[in-house]
C-alpha cells in the first residue's frame, strides 16, 4: 500500500497582480519522507511553503495538507504542523529566553488566554534535551550562536510532536559546517520521531546528500524525485540558467555544470601563463 500523502498539490497557480509566482504546480509529499524544495531566488519556494501552511490561498488548483485544504485546518489539527520560519535579525533583540521561545510552540495547543504551565515546561525541556540544548534553556536569544538559535526554533516547532516539519531556508544564516550539522540533525529527527520533513533551500549541494526527494522549482515544478534522478545538468540549467555551477556534497553526484563565459576566459588566461 502506498504511503499516505501528507501534502498534495494539484495544478496550483498563485499570482500577485500580474506576476505569476507559481504556475500549475503539482506535487506530493508522502509520510516519512525528507523532501527539499530547491530553486533560485524568486522561484516561488517560499510562496509554495506559504500555500502548504495555509497562509496563502491559491487562485487555482487544489491543496490538501493532512487530508484537508490547509486554510480549513482547525487549531488542534495544526498541532501536526511544525514550522520553522526563516530567521529575522530582529528576533535576536527580543528579551526572550530559549525556554520562552520553545513554549511559544504550545500557544496553539493552549488556546486563547491560557498561559503555559508545568506540563508545558516539562515538554519543552524534553524537546530541548532531544536537540541537545537543554543547558541553554535559560539563555537569552541574543546570547546564542546562529546554530543554537536555529535549534531553539526547531525545538519550538517540535514541541507538539508534529507529523510534518516545515522549514524555510533553515541554512540561510549558517556557515557550511553548521549547515551540515543542521541537516544531519534533521535526518536524525526524521528517523527517531518518524517525522516527515519538508524544507525550502537554495543550497543544491547539501540537499543532494540528505534529502530523499528533491523538488526543483522555477515558478513551475521542473522536476521532482530522488536526488540522483532529479539533480541533472538539464534540470539545474532550467532553474539556474546556463552559467550556474553547483558542486554536489558528500557521497552524491558531483554535478559539474558548464563554466560561465567569465570563468572560461579566466581559466584560459591562467593556462596561457608560463
Amino acid at each position: 500500500m502506498p504511503a499516505l500523502p501528507l501534502v498534495e498539490l494539484r495544478d496550483v497557480t498563485v499570482r500577485f497582480g500580474a506576476h505569476v509566482a507559481l504556475e500549475r504546480v503539482s506535487f506530493r509529499v508522502e509520510e516519512g519522507q525528507f523532501t527539499a524544495i530547491i530553486g533560485p531566488n524568486g522561484a516561488g519556494k517560499t510562496t509554495l511553503l506559504r500555500v502548504i501552511l495555509g497562509i496563502l490561498r491559491p487562485e487555482e488548483g487544489e491543496v490538501r495538507v493532512l487530508g484537508k485544504p490547509p486554510w480549513k485546518l482547525t487549531r488542534k489539527e495544526r498541532l501536526d504542523l511544525g514550522y520553522v520560519p526563516q530567521e529575522f535579525p530582529r528576533h535576536r533583540h527580543f528579551p526572550l529566553r530559549v525556554m520562552d521561545v520553545v513554549l511559544m510552540g504550545r500557544y496553539g495547543a493552549l488556546g486563547w488566554f491560557r498561559r503555559p504551565g508545568a506540563d508545558d515546561r516539562r515538554r519543552a525541556l524534553e524537546i530541548l534535551k532531544l536537540l541537545e540544548i537543554d543547558h541553554l534553556a535559560h539563555r537569552r536569544l541574543a546570547e546564542l550562536s546562529g546554530g543554537e538559535r536555529q535549534r531553539a526554533f526547531i525545538a519550538r516547532a517540535l514541541i507538539n510532536r508534529p507529523r510534518l516539519l516545515l522549514l524555510d531556508e533553515p541554512s540561510a544564516s549558517l556557515d557550511p559546517a553548521m549547515t551540515e550539522g543542521l541537516f544531519a540533525l534533521l535526518r536524525r529527527l526524521q528517523k527517531e520521531l518518524g517525522l516527515t520533513v519538508l524544507l525550502v533551500s537554495h543550497d543544491v549541494g547539501i540537499v543532494a546528500s540528505f534529502a530523499d526527494r528533491v523538488a526543483c522549482l522555477a515558478r513551475r515544478l521542473v522536476a521532482h524525485g530522488r536526488p540522483q534522478e532529479v539533480l541533472t545538468e538539464a534540470n539545474l540549467e532550467c532553474m539556474y540558467g546556463r552559467h550556474a555551477a553547483a558542486v554536489g556534497h558528500g557521497q552524491l553526484p558531483h554535478i559539474v555544470l558548464p563554466l560561465s563565459e567569465h570563468e572560461k576566459t579566466f581559466r584560459n588566461d591562467q593556462e596561457r601563463r608560463p
Partner: peptide
C-alpha cells in the same frame, strides 16, 4: 494582560502565529 501571550507571539513571529491558527 489577558492577551499578553497572543500579542507577544504576533510581535515576535506573525508567520508562526498564523501557522498556529491565531
Amino acid at each position: 494582560l489577558l492577551l499578553s501571550k497572543e500579542f507577544l507571539l504576533i510581535a515576535f513571529d506573525p508567520e508562526f502565529a498564523r501557522v498556529a491558527g491565531f
